[in-house]
Amino acid sequence: MWDPVTDKPRPGTLHLALVNAVHNGDSEALAKLLKAKKPGCTPADRNSAGETPLMLAAAADHAACIDALVDAGADVRERDIHGRTALHVACRQGRLAAADALLRCGANPDTRDLSQFTCLHIAAREGLDKVCDLLCRHNAVVDAPVAEQGWTPLMLAANGGHATTCAVLLQHGADDAKTVKSDTSATRFTVHQLIGRGRMTGGGMDPELDEEVKEVFRSRGEGVHAGLRPGDEKQLDASAAARRRVAAGAK
């Protein structure tokens, strides 16, 4: 269903019965429709947004439907117009059962979308601890950098204030001394993102989240050796204190 001229999937129409079966998680009805091979009822068909039935099943978190589609020939490598696979869709929405089913069916967790994000980048950015753990247990590259910026999943999790996600990634071997293109370690990158937010007025991240992220790195005994420079921790403490004052004044 890919257009060789535009190198994008051709819009199509999925049969309403198939769409309903997927959304309702009715794998038996879905299997019957797939077996009949009517127009709009094959694993290769797409809706007007370029999504395959497998992507819809991933978004709905129906593992049984994913199994039925793969048994009928669905390709877990198929991409949408953004270059995302069904696994990208599942991970972005925190669909743990769907992600597990797709990985069991051979989906590659390290496939990149058009923004060069792997599934782990997306899950880390969204703070989805269980999805990150699942991907890492299926051998996702934990320190894969985003091509342009060089950000790792750990950096994205820390920048989003997701302390528990940082902890999960560190448990799976994420390197907090990994550097971005500016030769900045994950720890220093995180600190300066938090300091920068502290200088902003009118809200921003909950200061308690910043403290939790900072503590994840501190609890590992990290400091100057992990990329922090003299004065960074004082700036971070002052930044967090300023945010607490702003938050207290807003109540």
Rank of each mutant, 00 (worst) to 15 (best):
S182W: 02
P145R: 05
A157D: 00
K234C: 04
D183C: 08
G173N: 03
C105K: 15
R95W: 02
C41R: 04
E233L: 15
L170W: 00
Q193V: 11
L103S: 03
M55A: 07
G12S: 04
R95E: 09
F189I: 01
L69M: 14
M155S: 08
R46P: 10
G204T: 10
D129V: 02
V19H: 03
A68F: 13
A147P: 00
M1K: 10
M1Q: 11
H23A: 09
G73M: 12
R245W: 00
D71C: 12
V146C: 15
L120T: 01
R137E: 00
D71V: 11
D67Q: 13
G203K: 09
M55N: 01
G40N: 08
A248N: 07
G198F: 06
E126G: 04
G106S: 07
P207I: 08
A158C: 14
H82C: 12
D176I: 07
P4Q: 10
S48Q: 15
A98R: 05
R92K: 10
L34G: 02
V89N: 01
A240C: 09
D129G: 05
R10I: 15
A72K: 04
A64Y: 05
A248Y: 03
L156C: 12
P39A: 09
A177F: 01
V19A: 11
G73Y: 09
A101T: 05
A31Q: 12
T13E: 12
V5N: 07
A68M: 13
D175F: 00
G83P: 06
L87R: 02
A107P: 04
L14N: 08
H121W: 08
V146F: 07
I66G: 02
G94T: 03
T164K: 11
D113L: 06
D75T: 10
V19I: 13
A250I: 04
A238L: 15
D80N: 15
R10Y: 12
L103Y: 00
A241C: 04
